[in-house]
Design a protein around this nucleic acid. Structure first.
Lengths: 212, 212, 212, 212
DNA sequence: CATGAATGAGTGTTCATTCAT
DNA sequence: CATGAATGAACACTCATTCAT
């Protein structure tokens, strides 16, 4: 019974995964609102009703798609952070992880930025609890690194870390948005360098500069 | 005839103005998509059909709302720029003008950022030609100021002014977005100081720093 | 008072006439349903409301247009009949009068056949009483002529005149319809000859044939 | 799979058939334009949306109704033609087939003649390709029969067969229209005899008469 | 589990008609 | 008489969701 349950569960997950992929494809093609459940089902090669066995409604379906990316995104970023001990470099590698993942999934992020169904684009938006948690966790790690960097004098001390983080997010997200929607020809590494240059300027060890 | 035309025109404008206000109120309340023409009309205290005497359709109605704000927004910003001759200060005052206006019209900008109907959130989005032009014009002024600032060594020279501007927009928009959607208690001036601090860091006269 | 009334009446008629012409132009251009009262008013160079001072509603406006043509059409046909004493020739000249008038007002008749608003195309349709009467009157004259022709052995006697008339109408109307809607290059006289040839065949003095 | 497909298809056809019948009933009652989709759905005992699973829109729904009748109408007429070898008799039986079918479906033909949605009443009107083809095919057969009849001296030779056919259509359609809209008490056979009598007169072997 | 036919509430838009000025 | 701004009922069509099979 237990084994069967597990097997069932595994099958269920595989199916759900396939459906998410199909739904993402359809939504990327048409946009969230204009992708009808019928089209999504056609893309998945199953009946409309079937989706409702796996997801409560269209919105939750989209949230699941987001969650699926969110999980990998934050895992990647966290993994990046752990490849070094230097606080500021931690932050940079985390950011780079983000950027790299987004780069590899441009169409989805275009969809995400463009068509969030709840129309709440802020980072604090009401995402699915799972993603929210993932974001929260990553956020904590980043804050810790920023605090350490402050201690080491790598970043300015006159502003709270929360604000520095907010600034980083702002720069990151919006510049990435530019890169996503414009036909940016710059390579990933060039982009990263530019973004990081700007961020460093903003959060950099100002006090020391000012002193000098 | 001319006078009558003027009178008619004036009445028309007053009515259109009132309708725009009502529509804005309704959309702010419900969001662009969910605010039905019926609700909007109710808010304006007139019949549905009446709106179609003044605006071709729902989308143009929204564009008119945007244009109405856009006009004042950019005029304010431009006026701010012209109160000084120092290039970098020009840029700062322009940005401050933006921020101040947005602050005074939070609900609308929440709507705007949240519910753009064409789902094109980039700054270069296809707005109504009028707004687009206004934005373009302001953009040119800002670029000129940035170039002058570069010449005077007030901002870094290693990046093209277009990129610096993009960075400023990114910071401005997204931080403002934060302020709009979170319950930010900071005063306008505090906000401006923070934003400008970060921006200055990013675009600041880096070359000299690096030399040192 | 009486004179003034007459003057007023004359002015009224002139105005109404102009409105009818304008309305016909607009409807011919767009079709009955698609010609909006606004467009019609624009064509007439007056306000929408003005039409409702002269005609109860759109349908009566159209009926008035029909009546205006009907009057002349039947007068022409009747006049034609009275230019001869031979019964069958009377009938022919009446028919020719019809055809000639229709020919000179193709656009209107296309409109009429195409877009009758009450969607009642039969000749016995509920036209405005005036036109109905005019049609009735002409019909009587034609029947009398046919009866006389029967007596003289010019047309078959085995069918009632009403049926012969019906047959004539049928041929006339539908062949004319063909001529109106197809790009018929035949001259009016050629057309008339063909139609009359067919009609003569149908109603012609059969009894003599049968004897032979 | 094939069997299932056939079963599904069969069910679909049955449903579509029922919907067509209901729609025809509703439209016959109210007229094409005034029969709303809601009323039609009520007549069919289903929801509005359901119709859109079977027909793209109201116009195609009507076209399907027409096509359904057209198919049987022309098949009946053709079958009638093939029951004899005499050319003129072929033509007569074809016409009789038409008349008989129309007689059995008076309400529909009243609707058809009254409310053609595209407002193109000519016989060459833009019907659905299927019906158009069916009409075309039958038309060809009739023309061949007329040509054969001309050769045998059964019908006049001084006019092209196309014109004779046009004449027949004209008489047929319009007389039938009369019969449909007036309260004609004549039996089908009587009607046919009359129509055929008139047609024979028009297209009859004139040349021989003229010679005599 | 899967299906897909059926649902029906919901919406933007048009336009003949009215009526205060 | 003339105006034309305002009206608001009416309608075709869509699509997320359900449920009998």
């Amino acid at each position: 019974m237990a084994k069967q349950g597990t097997l069932r569960q595994r099958l269920r997950d595989v199916t759900a995964e396939a459906m998410l992929e199909a739904a993402e494809r359809a939504m990327v093609k048409k946009g969230y609102d204009k992708a009808t459940m019928a089209q999504i089902a056609a893309e998945a090669g199953c009946a409309t009703g079937t989706f409702y066995l796996y997801f409560k409604n269209k919105e939750e379906l989209f949230e699941a798609i987001i969650a699926r990316h969110g999980k990998v995104l934050f895992e990647t970023a966290r993994a990046g952070m752990e490849t070094t001990d230097d606080p500021l470099e931690k932050v940079r590698r985390g950011a780079e992880g983000h950027l790299r993942y987004i780069h590899q999934h441009k169409p989805f992020f275009r969809l995400f930025l463009t068509a969030m169904p709840m129309r709440q684009r802020t980072l604090h938006a009401k995402l699915s609890p799972r993603v929210r948690q993932q974001h929260e966790d990553y956020s904590q790690l980043e804050l810790e690194a920023l605090r350490a960097a402050q201690k080491k004098g790598q970043v300015r001390r006159d502003l709270p870390v929360e604000l520095l983080q907010q600034f980083m997010d702002a720069v990151g997200i919006n510049i990435v948005e530019e890169f996503l929607f414009s036909n940016c020809k710059r390579s990933l590494d060039e982009q990263m360098e530019i973004i990081w240059g700007l961020i460093t300027g903003g959060i950099g060890a100002r006090s020391s500069h000012e002193r000098s």
